[in-house]
Design a protein around this nucleic acid. Structure first.
Length: 274
DNA sequence: AGCGTCACCCGGACGC
DNA sequence: TGCGTCCGGGTGACGC
């Protein structure tokens, strides 16, 4: 399930041309687009996307929350990988991938494959990125996301921390893994109410969110389930997917509860509920 | 308006 | 082998 660090890793690899990729995606010209599963295109439609993207050049690639933002010569294409999506830049003679539902063929013979086992992912083709990302909350790794700002944001809401941090309009990019990891780093219970945090706890949470995300990026994201991207962060989980195993800080067995229909992992000793 | 809950979209994994 | 169930990101519907 690609979250901010996984999406950031993919963006960097596609942009820079990492070892696994032949070259950077920047500057490539789209010759045609294959859409094997039309519902992959959220808007405007698979047909229009295929028509409009023909001949366009990739000018830039960035990330906003969990969205990849491709700036093309005549508009913006955004991709959300949701749970099982992956993007791979492949050479001309690469073996077929039965889950590659949308494929961007470039004029140099390479192709960008949007592989998506569960078909939850989405492609957007719009004039301005904000049409898709407009409602997203702040980028947690940007300088403008300060502890003071987080404090004001938390104080203005009356919600349990876990569902609030997962809310993309509150902060962009956190998913289940990094939310659980951040709350453990901060020593805060997932059910703590957002407006109940002391200033020191706000600072701890702010630091923990950024630390968890940066750690994930440093390890090239986490490789779990069916999607493998070469990331190693799964070996550094403190609580996520570790129910029953000892807390790395105190040895207490990690507990798993369900909060807002999401599996939630925490240490009852390090993250007490007052 | 804010919040919680639920259904939905999917298919792989897992338990029986 | 073949069921049924679980899981999850984001959205939208609904009720409080």
């Amino acid at each position: 399930m690609p979250e901010l660090p996984e999406v950031e890793t993919i963006v960097r690899q596609l942009r820079q041309g990492a070892p696994v990729h032949v070259s950077s995606v920047i500057g490539k010209r789209i010759e045609r687009v294959t859409v094997r599963w039309p519902r992959h295109v959220a808007r405007p439609s698979a047909r229009v996307l295929q028509h409009d993207l023909r001949g366009q050049t990739v000018r830039a690639l960035s990330r906003r929350g969990k969205y990849l933002v491709f700036k093309l010569s005549g508009g913006v294409m955004l991709i959300h990988l949701k749970m099982s999506g992956d993007l791979k830049l492949v050479g001309p003679n690469t073996a077929a991938d039965k889950h590659a539902h949308t494929i961007f063929h470039f004029s140099d013979g390479t192709a960008l494959r949007f592989s998506d086992t569960r078909k939850f992912g989405k492609v957007f083709w719009v004039a301005r990125a904000e049409e898709v990302t407009g409602a997203l909350g702040p980028e947690p790794l940007e300088a403008s996301f300060t502890a003071a700002r987080l404090g004001r944001m938390l104080a203005g809401r009356r919600r349990a921390l876990k569902p609030l941090l997962l809310d993309q309009t509150f902060i962009a990019g956190l998913g289940n893994i990094y939310t659980d990891e951040a709350l453990h780093l901060a020593g805060l219970h997932p059910l703590r109410r957002s407006d109940s945090l002391a200033p020191a706890e706000v600072r701890a949470l702010w630091r923990a969110i950024r630390q968890a995300l940066r750690l994930g990026i440093r390890h090239n994201g986490a490789s779990i389930d069916w999607v493998y991207r070469g990331g190693e962060f799964q070996h550094h989980f403190r609580v996520y997917d570790r129910a029953g195993k000892p807390c790395l800080t105190c040895g207490t067995p990690i507990r798993r509860i369900v909060v807002g229909q999401r599996g939630t992992h925490y240490c009852p000793q390090c993250q007490p509920l007052p």
